[in-house]
Design a protein around this nucleic acid. Structure first.
Length: 574
RNA sequence: CGGGGUAUAGCGUAGUCCGGCUAUCGCGCCUGCUUUGGGAGCAGGAGGUCGCAGGUUCAAAUCCUGCUACCCCGACCA
């Protein structure tokens, strides 16, 4: 491709509203152009990179035995009501939906479990027809509350989603492992550094799930991991062990303490000099179900935070919200900051985190404004409520698997997520088969997603320098760009074009910068758009020499023009 | 959804507080000449419903009211 013909319009200035480096470079180069909030135009170069990512995924899906299909983007409400997710997604306000002229309500697919399950159940009736894995790479829509970070979080994006169907757990486990291995090959081929972490399965549902996280400071997800034993988890899911705290057996009796307008744990520590791990805070939550609401008070050791996702999973509700100030006042008859396990409104269920079990002689609220109890003991002063794992794991906590090493923290970009769905959809949608014994059983499903378009951002977050993008070879839009230093008719331009034609004819992916702009301009562009090999034809062309710069290392090699093709072939085949 | 902010040429902006001449500057664009090893120089030129609608005024980019879009923080979210 000649650059004089290429639809490429780089700028000198960074876009004003870009926050992360991938978005800055993508939009400075206009490889990516914002249409409106959450929606983008992809330029020709970026589209080439996208196709390369798609092709790598296709190849590995084929190898893993998955078959490509296409599902409708617009789906009927009825299909989503079968799985029970219509209300879920509408309630969460993350789904675009509309009506056609006949007033049939439809949604723009945010994910396709329902469609694939419907497709498969029409034809699969026997265990003998299984296993099956189907996938598509299609446009998805999510009405993001706040699209941001360029291609990282958009309302319209391209995703690869695969679905496996089996008749027993062993089959599902095997499909899951097959896809997991395929994912590793995909991200290795593209050239991304990633961590596989345990994850919460969120609105998709199901049992086990793991996420593939591209590590980058700009990532939106927090990962906790152990260097010793391979434990790694999304903070949403992560567990941890706490250091043992020794509480002195003072035998001191429970006592009511006047704490005027002192509400937060920090203020109480300041006021009472009692350490925060000897306090128990009470947070009131509102669990929202389809048809009802329920209030729950959670007791948590004062130095720890509550993981609301764990809470939501425990109660299996649509949404968990902190109770509003008005609700707290109405329910506890006290100002916010004085809730506690004592004198609690019986409408509120009381539970605790495991961390409260060992705390003795602690401070807590009693639902009376401006007062707290001190020296409270479970068993002596009040019964211990049921406890669950509800705390937010932190960096420096002990690893829950090996118990020895401290957890470390990194930020990650979620580029892949694999789930064992089990029978969540097949049961509700009546996707049944006959097993060996002649019983009708729901199919065991798995689902496996890759953020095809998000990989572009993730790759640039990991591969760039102060000049621009450094595309990994596997997804570079072109591999080589040839730059003549002078555009006037003469030896330089003739030779450069001759080599360009030769490389092109021999199957190389090569650009030729034949624009009538200065040398510096061409170099800046080549670096910004991240072409792996830059070949300059200058004064020494008459001596049969050219210069090759390797974008990644910034290393420049002078070589005979006759040696160039072999050198490039060797380099690209590595 | 709450808080904060922005909207002037393709892009980035000055002017807005304190209303007043032909709306500023840079990049980009067009023509010509000179240039070409790190985003070229000179000369000339085109390009604007000042986000939209209404109001106040002799006079509105500027003041008032309403609306819309976009951005940031939070909440929220595969």
């Amino acid at each position: 491709m000649k650059l004089s013909k290429l639809f490429l319009f780089t700028t000198k200035e960074f876009p004003k509203d870009a926050e992360i480096i991938s978005d800055k470079y993508l939009r400075k180069s206009n490889l990516l152009v914002k249409s409106h909030s959450g929606f983008f135009y992809y330029s020709p170069l970026l589209t080439r990179s996208l196709h390369k990512i798609r092709a790598i995924i296709d190849k590995e899906m084929e190898r893993a035995g998955a078959q490509e299909v296409l599902m409708p983007i617009l789906m009927k409400k009825e299909l989503w009501e079968e799985s029970g997710r219509w209300d879920n997604y509408i309630n969460a306000k993350i789904m675009f939906h509309l009506r056609n002229r006949k007033d049939v309500e439809m949604c723009l697919g945010p994910t396709h479990e329902e469609a694939f399950t419907d497709f498969v159940r029409r034809f699969i009736t026997s265990y003998k027809q299984l296993p099956i894995i189907l996938y598509q790479q299609n446009t998805k829509f999510r009405d993001e509350i706040r699209p941001r970070f360029g291609l990282m979080r958009t309302s319209e994006f391209i995703m690869k989603d695969a679905y496996s169907f089996d008749y027993n757990q062993a089959g599902l486990d095997a499909a899951y492992q097959t896809m997991r291995a395929a994912y590793k090959r995909i991200f290795d081929t593209i050239g991304l550094h990633y961590i596989i972490v345990q994850a919460d399965s969120g609105a998709i549902g199901g049992s086990g799930s793991e996420e593939f996280m591209v590590t980058a400071d700009s990532g939106e997800d927090t990962i906790l991991y152990c260097d010793d034993c391979d434990y790694a988890a999304n903070v949403e899911k992560a567990e941890s062990l706490l250091d043992t705290v020794i509480y002195e057996e003072t035998g001191t009796a429970i006592q009511k303490l006047h704490t005027p307008d002192i509400k937060s744990v920090e203020e109480l520590v300041e006021f009472t000099k009692i350490p925060n791990n000897q306090m128990i805070k009470t947070i009131i939550f509102k669990m929202i179900y389809e048809d009802r609401e329920k209030f729950v008070a959670v007791l948590m050791r004062g130095d720890l935070e509550i993981n609301e996702i764990k809470l939501q999973n425990l109660y299996d509700c649509l949404e968990v919200k902190k109770a509003s100030e008005e609700e707290v006042v109405t329910l506890t008859k006290a100002q916010v900051g004085f809730a506690g396990p004592f004198n609690l409104n019986p409408e509120i269920e009381l539970i605790g985190d495991h961390s409260i079990k060992s705390v003795k002689y602690f401070l807590c609220g009693l639902n009376t404004t401006d007062y707290h109890y001190i020296n409270v003991c479970f068993g002596r002063d009040i019964a211990m409520p049921k406890t669950y794992e509800l705390k937010l794991a932190r960096e420096h906590d002990l690893c829950p698997r090996c118990g020895k090493q401290r957890l470390k923290q990194k930020m990650g970009i979620e580029v892949g997520h694999i789930f064992k769905l089990g029978t969540k959809y097949s049961e509700k949608m009546n996707a049944l088969i006959l097993d060996e014994a002649g019983n009708k059983v729901p199919m065991k499903m798995g689902c496996y997603g890759i953020g095809t378009s998000r990989i572009i951002s993730a790759a640039i977050e990991q591969h760039h320098d102060d000049k621009g993008i450094i595309w990994p070879i596997a997804i570079a839009p072109y591999h080589i760009t040839i730059i003549p230093t002078i555009d006037k008719p003469g030896v330089i331009i003739d030779k450069a074009e001759e080599i360009y034609n030769k490389l092109n004819d021999n199957g190389f992916e090569v650009l030729f910068d034949d624009r009538g702009v200065s040398f510096g301009f061409k170099m800046k562009d080549a670096e910004l758009i991240g072409i792996p090999y830059i070949v300059v034809f200058g004064k020494k062309t008459v001596d049969g020499l050219c210069e090759l710069t390797i974008r990644k290392t910034n290393q420049t090699i002078e070589m005979g023009i006759d040696k160039l093709q072999d050198f490039l072939r060797d380099s690209l085949n590595k």
